[in-house]
Write a protein that binds this DNA or RNA. Structure first.
Lengths: 244, 244
DNA sequence: AAGCTCAAGTTACCATACTAGTGTCCCGCG
DNA sequence: CGCGGGACACTAGTATGGTAACTTGAGCTT
């Protein structure tokens, strides 16, 4: 189906080498376009429009929208339309809360189960991260960071934990993307990764969890600055009264 | 659309009072039917069959299947069919791992933020649980247990944490259902809930987390027994070699 | 001038039809 | 009797058409 590469509004999806369902590919492509801010927060999306621009039917696009809606990246309003939600500080902090809870537990578990081979897998990932840093390849670093955290879950024997992280992570990823655009030194991130690996190699669960917590706290530092610098990308903070 | 109550294979979905999308209702109905074991693990499902039995089209059923697939309750095999996955001890333990990580963090946070009003909400829930216990109303207890954990997330100011729990919980719910069928004393569960509330009221985060951990460890006791008693509901344990 | 009504346009939701991939069963061949 | 091949009966994936709900703005009433 459509052996070509299509372009639309900074949305490029390659259908050529695909035995994978189109719906999934569209979801991935849209997620990437949203996370990398090629589609601006607040923008309206239309099943019809995306479908015709990609040369496919509305059905797969619809399923992709549903997936993105569950990830909290778009808000799909029945009979009205679908819009890319703005970055919400509350949502980012909620996602961070989940990540901290899960990934600290993962780090602890990884430290308990560590052996030479598993540690080697992690140190190898670290080496690749350092190479990407020297090459100043931001995109590769982004992907390698993701892989590192996935590997941790595998090492801990809880690969399914990574699935949960993937569900909540997109909220944070847009902020991380802004971080990189502002050229925040990624060397710090890699140093934190190294500390985590070291703690795991030392079979010290407490230290591993602490290192992970420190790592995941990093985003809280940049969040206010970024919300200040790019106010149009963020939800205006409403002085809401908590239901409880 | 279809102002009637339909029945099919122990699957009852009421479409009458609904402004809610049909797809969502079907997903809920199917999830409940699977979790309550009205649909047996290992059974094959057919979009077509379910759709015609409910008097709707395949489309909403398909979307419901996708949701259940993401929850890990069904395995949807392209061009082949969709089957209700058997209970997997590994999957249950993975889900438990996630829940423990997230809910212990929630309990800690709730203890930090506790005030009189929030504690009152929780003690009120406890009272209702005790009433249901005296009335020996298993279904109500099941629902109240769910509500209690959701309230905890709200009290902690992390309502989105409950969404994550909802995603992984169905795996455990089938086991919990078997637990109830075996008439495991629910008084223990309620006592554990009470201990959690007490720790939160005392503003003791460490104790709250510990109480939650103890509560969520309970299922590990019954899991082997149930896997032994109902082998046909469980995946046979393959002596697989871990990839790492 | 302000507020209400209503018609037009757009949307997601659902139904229906079609496509393509996968097992199965039966028949014919070795 | 065993075994390979092909037609068939499924399946999920995709395309397309119809429908009800919602926004919007113009025109009317007060």
């Amino acid at each position: 189906m459509l052996d070509q590469r299509l372009m639309a509004d900074g949305l490029a999806i390659d259908f050529s080498h695909s035995s994978e369902p189109i719906a999934r590919q569209v979801a991935r492509g849209l997620r990437h376009a949203i996370v990398s801010l090629q589609i601006r927060p607040g923008e309206m999306l239309s099943e019809q429009e995306i479908a015709s621009k990609l040369g496919i039917s509305r059905q797969p696009v619809r399923e992709a929208f549903i997936k993105l809606g569950e990830a909290g990246l778009v808000r799909i309003m029945p009979q009205r339309g679908t819009l890319v939600v703005k970055i919400s500080r509350a949502a980012v902090e909620d996602a961070r809360f989940i990540r901290e809870a899960v990934e600290c537990a993962v780090a602890r578990e990884a430290a308990r189960r560590a052996d030479a081979k598993k540690v080697a897998v992690l140190t190898d990932s670290l080496a690749r991260q350092r190479r990407a840093l020297r090459a100043k390849d931001g995109g590769a670093l982004f992907a390698l960071d993701e892989e590192f955290h996935r590997l941790l879950a595998e090492v801990a024997g809880r690969p399914s934990a990574w699935n949960v992280i993937e569900d909540v992570k997109p909220q944070m990823d847009r902020v991380r993307y802004l971080d990189m655009a502002d050229a925040i030194p990624m060397s710090i991130v890699i140093a934190q990764h190294a500390e985590i690996v070291e703690a795991i190699a030392a079979k010290d669960p407490g230290r591993a969890a602490a290192a992970m917590q420190a790592h995941l706290t990093e985003i809280l530092r940049s969040l206010p600055k970024l919300a200040d610098r790019y106010p149009e990308l963020f939800e205006e903070v409403t002085a809401e009264t908590s239901p409880l």
